[in-house]
Design a protein around this nucleic acid. Structure first.
Lengths: 243, 243
DNA sequence: AGTCAAAATAATGTATACATTTATTGGAAC
DNA sequence: GTTCCAATAAATGTATACATTATTTTGACT
């Protein structure tokens, strides 16, 4: 019945399409921080009526990307550096919890297979000497798969939803892992091996601690990269648009 | 300009009013778990058009109270006992993080005053021998004030939003603290004193650990109370409506 | 009787007109 | 020139008609 899709669901409704297009526009920096997003202007820009636009704005606000004030509409939220950094802190404790719950509950065979495959894929990718941008992009997918499998195996929908919210904070998204250096990638892949062992071996406390430090290390890398002025400019563009 | 209000903002718009009324209806158990919430039926029931009803449904779905499927509408989400319990786990790690960040950053004078007042109010309330239901209701407010002040002092909006989501899980709301026994209330008030000391004394690690265990102890009490079959029935009503 | 398909029904998705609130503009009073 | 208020413009809030999709019903065919 439904056509075979390569990646995601096809946004059957205009509302969903507008959500994706608006989010992409925001993340691409097409609006300034604090800028107001007028419904009617977006209407002409996106070629749909106000109804799906309004719904999309509400959804993006619920994801934390926009601010909303009754009778005054939506504005692009400002993300301070400290807010971005603390998003990693939040994600670290949540993913740590996911690892602990997963270890307490135990992995099923499907989850074990997926995680082991992700580990092997990572091994293969990092075996060769040099790491290209393409490698980094591939590893980003493997990394997402590894983490998502653990989130899922924790068995808490609320936990999944809160982790999702953390990843909606602009620079906090896992895909920005491509910005990191080679030794960081290798180190994090080693982390994955140890985390899997801890969960597989039913060591909740160790799994939590390892995962927590694993995610927090991304924060550290970000802070380190933000130490150079050029990097700060770069990140600020991503966060706040090219204001 | 704006009139003085006793508690909350007055929901100037129909949309906000519908959100509150619908949420109250859901928490009062006026719908069954998995039941569909038809827009048109709610329209006649609430006396407004579909537009604010749709927006309200979307908001409640974003809070995790409803499920949504495109072209098929909204249904009341089912909350399993394990989901409710893990909501406390999530809240525990998040509030633990809030305490740590608060201790790292330091309390300002206003926050110190608020927390000390909450501690004194609790002391006064618990000094007298017996604890009535009215006392419990009062303590519930004091408790909320204490925790909210710490969340705020952590300085992370994402953290506040994720904690809010945890509290939207039906039975997980702090107001259900009234269900607990007297010695639990006293024990938790003692926790508050120690947590304040840890934050005030800039001991991040200790503050996190204490707060985490503090919130997790609520989970333990809930699990204990769920051990008796009668209590299980009671909680299930709260969760799933009187289906 | 059972199964399947087409028609009818009813729900959600969308566009749009109107209502209400907010923001802007212009001018009178000081 | 500044301040304030009224008038205007423009934005969001709401209702509703229509479009599209999902569900149910009906009836023909096996």
């Amino acid at each position: 019945m439904t056509k075979l899709r390569l990646s995601e669901a096809p946004s059957s409704t205009r509302f969903e399409s507008v959500v994706e297009r608006l989010r992409a526009a925001v993340l691409a920096g097409e609006f300034q921080a604090g800028e107001r997003l007028h419904e009617v202007k977006l209407t002409s820009r996106l070629g749909v009526s106000r109804t799906p636009v309004r719904a999309a704005l509400q959804k993006l606000a619920s994801e934390g990307l926009l601010d909303y004030t009754p009778n005054r509409g939506y504005t692009l939220r400002e993300f301070s550096i400290s807010e971005v950094i603390s998003a990693y802190e939040v994600r670290a404790v949540l993913e740590g919890l996911a690892a602990r719950l997963s270890a307490e509950r135990g992995l099923n065979v499907s989850e074990i297979a997926t995680l082991q495959q992700a580990l092997r894929d990572g091994d293969d990718l990092l075996r060769n000497g040099q790491i290209t941008d393409d490698h980094r992009a591939q590893y980003s997918r493997i990394n997402a798969c590894f983490h998502e499998t653990i989130h899922g195996s924790a068995g808490s929908r609320l936990l999944n939803e809160t982790v999702y919210l953390c990843q909606q904070v602009p620079v906090s998204s896992p895909r920005y892992i491509v910005a990191f250096e080679e030794r960081d990638v290798r180190r994090r892949h080693d982390d994955h091996h140890r985390i899997f062992e801890a969960i597989f071996g039913r060591e909740p406390w160790r799994a939590e601690m390892l995962m927590r430090d694993h995610v927090a290390s991304v924060k550290s890398s970000l802070v380190r990269s933000l130490s150079s002025p050029a990097a700060i400019d770069e990140e600020l563009q991503l966060q706040q648009g090219r204001g």
